[in-house]
Design a protein around this nucleic acid. Structure first.
Lengths: 368, 368
DNA sequence: TTGAAAGCGGTACCAG
DNA sequence: CTGGTACCGCTTTCAA
């Protein structure tokens, strides 16, 4: 069925075992039962098999190129060791990708099967159902996909013993690692304010990918600016009019749309002087690099005329001149997260609905 | 077997459906047989089910949060729609990661289940066996993992109808997309030679990750330099002594070890004048950026004193001043590759052992 | 229109 | 020490 253009009658002793070999084939070739094959190949401790038999079985398996069928095995076992890692959707930075690799290695050492399952263009619900079909023992949801409490429930009902999210918000039923994007914005704004800026621009990417983070980062910056206006008081009295642009009292924050292209950056830089800004938080280091380049080309001095800060501490930032200030997110190491997963799997009750917070800190270089 | 510490006698109608619901549970709740459930949930065309029954089944499934068990399904079906995509191991560039996403999307549209299966620290053989356990219908092997002919055979025996590799070499039995890293080196060297360089350095990353490509890129540069020495003649007469460094005849190529850090780049730049080089191919844009930065800081002029070229055409290169010349690899689009996969799956005989070649071209900017 | 039952590949009990 | 066998959850004939 799969070989079509073949000499029809070649009496080949070995090289034509079409269709995938099963443990029954191995058993037949070795002259034993399927049970024995299973025992031998899994080094079953509870049963003792004679050395000659083992040898026969091993050799038969080798000869047939036998590989066990993961689906059958896990069906029988009633559970898998699959840790599902929804694959990142948009270009992630090198830091993030190094982190993913660490995590994978660490999970593998703990004998989990790491499966990155792409779910681009699926809504949370559809994604959760698709994931649940694989019956993963744990799901680590890093990316943009926002899981609802119901989605978490779907996964748990399908046997997932741990659901861990890493994102801006808590999710009911899951263990949330909160990467507070608002704090990133707040740190950036605070840093600019400390260095004397009064009117701050915040770049909001035009691309859809970064959108989720962008809103939170902007809000964080706004909150920091408001906080600086009325220092340290947790907003008593009438609620502040929710950020009309901030041209009135205290330091102002103005959002700036920009795409991740030289053209867009150039356009923004072209009308910079009319904006009257003395500092800018450029969403991340890549946008910051683009914008800084364009501002320099437009004849502005950095940081004298305008201070620029990015985020995510990419290598890029250190290669530019002036060196780019940034906000670094203190991600847990892959090992730490792997250990968390393992603990959650062993003791699901202990970790559900808990949450931790990952810190962000401003790194001062030359651009601010 | 899976619930142990439970109150033994709580007569709960709905809210305690511990252990994952199966199609039998749905059937029971809906008051029909498992067969009917299967028909309804799969919209079986060959059989007509009454509308009331469909409704009952759907509702029961919904109520229980039923999700079919992928393993059981594919076990029964005898095949999967899994396309295995060995996950990249080391930080890949944004271009590469955008390509991966495209590929995933396109495959999903063709109704494949994309699974990235990390295999860090596994040898080719072990990796192939691990992959084979999942019985993928196709394997697309992009990364560093070198598959042997035997590994390909293992996968095919396990039912893979297509194995596609993308790397520096052909692999017997697989459809190879040859990204000729040697050509990248050759293009870079040729570009430098055209622009008048006579003694060319080639950066060889100290890191383990890029090692596989680095060797080929270096060799390509050497070949180009040799070609320039004896123009266009395909080496008649006695075989040339295989590259002793090339201080004697024609343009020379000297390998330069360097790590991906500012320190290492600085160290290399520090002893630059003693090397007597007038051009350098810096492995890729990132290394090139580091080195160029260090060279500028050491007081050298680019491109007057030394021409610098990178590879992979990262955004980074356009943000630096001078703008970085580079070698761009013309990757197929994700859509194209997905289509290739699909074709190979439908018609395995047609594509095995074929191969294509992806091109590389030098992009001239300001640094050369 | 629906139900009963076989069987996909492996594992693990129990009997010999 | 080894073989027979009953499942795991799902699809798909074949009968009713």
């Amino acid at each position: 069925m799969s070989q079509s253009s073949k000499p029809p009658e070649r009496s080949t002793p070995v090289p034509t075992p079409r269709s995938v070999p099963t443990s029954a084939d191995v058993a037949r070739l070795a002259g034993v039962s399927r049970a024995t094959v299973s025992y031998v190949l899994n080094n079953a401790a509870a049963v003792r098999i004679s050395e000659p038999t083992r040898r026969k079985v091993r050799q038969a398996a080798e000869e047939l190129g036998y590989v066990p069928h993961a689906a059958a095995r896990s069906l029988r076992a009633g559970h898998t060791r699959i840790v599902l890692l929804p694959a990142p959707e948009d270009p992630v930075g090198p830091r993030h990708s190094a982190f993913l690799n660490e995590l994978q290695q660490a999970l593998r050492r703990l004998d989990y099967t790491v499966v990155q399952y792409g779910s681009l263009g699926l809504s949370g619900g559809a994604a959760a159902r698709a994931w649940a079909e694989l019956r993963p023992v744990a799901v680590v949801c890093l990316g943009r996909i926002a899981l609802s409490a119901h989605d978490v429930d779907t996964l748990k009902r399908a046997g997932a013993r741990a659901v861990i999210t890493m994102g801006p918000a808590r999710v009911t039923g899951a263990h949330a690692l909160i990467t507070d994007q608002a704090e990133v914005g707040a740190r950036a704004a605070a840093h600019l304010l400390e260095r004397g800026c009064r009117r701050i621009g915040v770049v909001v990417p035009a691309e859809e990918g970064p959108a989720l983070f962008a809103g939170a980062r902007l809000e964080g910056a706004r909150a920091a600016a408001r906080g600086a206006a009325r220092p340290a008081v947790p907003a008593p009295g009438p609620p502040v009019r929710p950020c009309a642009g901030g041209a009135d009292s205290g330091p102002g924050v103005v959002p700036l749309a920009m795409a991740s292209t030289e053209e867009s950056a150039g356009e923004l830089a072209g009308r910079w002087r009319s904006l009257g800004l003395d500092g800018v938080f450029a969403y991340d280091d890549e946008y910051a690099a683009l914008l800084m380049r364009a501002l320099l080309d437009a004849g502005l001095r950095i940081p004298e005329d305008v201070a620029v800060i990015g985020a995510d501490d990419l290598l890029l930032g250190r290669l530019l001149r002036p060196r780019l200030s940034t906000v670094r997110i203190e991600m847990p190491t892959g090992e730490q997260l792997a250990e968390l997963v393992d603990r959650a799997v062993r003791e699901p009750a202990g970790t559900a609905d808990r949450h931790g917070r990952v810190a962000a800190t401003a790194v001062h270089r030359d651009s601010t």
